[in-house]
Design a protein around this nucleic acid. Sequence first.
DNA 1: ATCAGCTGAGAAAGCGTTTTCTTGGATCGC
DNA 2: GCGATCCAAGAAAACGCTTTCTCAGCTGAT
Lengths: 344, 344
Amino acid sequence: MVRKSASGRIGIADVAIKAGVSHATVSRVMNGNYTVDPEIAARVRAAAAELKYQPNPVGRSLALGKTDTIGIVVPDLANPTFQAILRGLSRAAAQDGYRVLIADSFEVSSEEAILAGEARRRCDGLVLCAPRMSDVELEEIAPSLHPLVLINRSTSAPDVPSLVVDYGQGVQDIAGHLVELGHTRLAFLAGPPRSASNEMRLKGLESFKAAHPEVDVTMLEGGSDFDTGHEAVDAVLASGASGILAFNDLVAMGLMSGLHERGLDVPGDISVTGFDDIPFAKYTTPALTTAAVPITELGEEAWHQLRTLIRKEGNETPGSRYQPRLEVRASTGPAKAPRSTVHG
Amino acid sequence: MVRKSASGRIGIADVAIKAGVSHATVSRVMNGNYTVDPEIAARVRAAAAELKYQPNPVGRSLALGKTDTIGIVVPDLANPTFQAILRGLSRAAAQDGYRVLIADSFEVSSEEAILAGEARRRCDGLVLCAPRMSDVELEEIAPSLHPLVLINRSTSAPDVPSLVVDYGQGVQDIAGHLVELGHTRLAFLAGPPRSASNEMRLKGLESFKAAHPEVDVTMLEGGSDFDTGHEAVDAVLASGASGILAFNDLVAMGLMSGLHERGLDVPGDISVTGFDDIPFAKYTTPALTTAAVPITELGEEAWHQLRTLIRKEGNETPGSRYQPRLEVRASTGPAKAPRSTVHG
DNA sequence: ATCAGCTGAGAAAGCGTTTTCTTGGATCGC
DNA sequence: GCGATCCAAGAAAACGCTTTCTCAGCTGAT
């Protein structure tokens, strides 16, 4: 007859009674403490097996002061970029026996601090992924979130490594590629206003404009998903640009789809570029020219940084900077000869 | 001077001391128990605010016997279908104040039971998403996982609602659509061997073949991602089929990309269909004909079912069956006149 | 004026572990 | 052979919270 503790679940006490030993001994056996008589250990193990005893992680967490869980806060779980980061993080953490708790802020920046705080308290560490909150707010809460790893943001708080992708350089590479193809009128389909990565792209474009005064760059408002790109067709055409830098691959795909519906040829009439190199980018027609970011790897690295923080391995935590790699595919091509130019 | 408890973090005891009351009173105030003198309550709240006290969820969980967290086990976090389910689940659960812990089994079915058990013990309930484990194993562990909701699998265990998509019907609808377009030679690019949804598709195709003996259906081995489709081009062409049912949208996209590289026109030369209607399906060129499954909604419903289980609202938990909706787009078209047929 | 009845707040007992502290018994050295 | 040393295992404290139990002090009725 299986004896149950009051709660109905089998606890350490049940095993102790069944094996005729104390709670402490059961705990020792379960944790591989070898200062226990082999014969008794065997008896405990047998009792545990018979009762199908599984230690309660909550009690364990309370006693040990750790949960073996980390949290991640993302602005939008629908975004493939964040999905990829989550995947990399989850896989890497799992290898070290940690689980991941997710919190989706749905792009409402005012929720982020609360979500982050709640998640942090439940976990041993936190990854804040591309938070939309203001710099001052980030500075304010960062210390209370330690151990903390930032993605695509940074803070002056000590011991908060930040992994940032150099979107500014990436966007310049793309623009350079388009100019080499003869495009002189470019347009940038911007991302979400509060996105720091968008800010970095804009800064990159400023540098680019400074270095290439002959090139005309139009800024268009946008977002981060398909529909943004799809709906931007009119604005893009109105801009008169022949080379379009979309905020990311999703926007680029939406745009290409819209252009296709209008009967326009990519890259014959217009060249389109994305950003991120999500898995889909390779399989669009035409295949998308983009700047590849090793996103999954970034998630893994986030775990590694967080791990050293959690383990308090005093090594300085440097953070890292990732350089996007230009991935030229079929969605970009030579600019048409401008209408104003007379051939021959 | 902020007094700290031994652990370094501020606990209920610190607030109690600062406010000059007992632990119990602080707890009462923090939980909105109104049997406490307003003046004292105010003092406690002030102390809590000043110390920035935040209750420790682990202690709370242990005392209350609940974690306000649910777990989900998926076979592959890289699969957009599971991402969408996760998203729906996470959003719906968040609205009720629950968080989601994720566990990715990376398609290794032997890990699932362990992952599920661990996740379940940390959480108040579990969603098992398209588990790859065998039926007998599922039957075996299901009772120990309660409260449990199954997606795309079912079990005889009581009180385990299962949400299943009628892939069998969906695949028949697609096949019917292709036949209406005049295709008489079809091929099915199958999914992962252990996938129950693949099994359901196969069953559906059997029914279809029985009802349409004149149609030839070739079965091809496959998988669930882009590359599967991309690599299947040769096999598809060798089959001689003019209408291809891909396991899902990803496979279809990979296949279309491969066909495009071979210079073949979709749907001019070959019609291709997907399954799921992931967001990308609308934006492929040509836009993908597929069977739409309300996946995110399914994730939400999973939460609702789990919620009634957790709350022990005795209502029977029926589970639901979802009918895919045929979404005809541009990747399917009339079959070419068969070579063997003489016109006129 | 006295006592039952009530109320508000402190004391303490859980929740399920781990870990320190303690103790009885065995071991070892002289 | 006896005290110092050590070891294995039990008792108990700790982790941080909630909640029951308890009791002092008060209200109000007789």
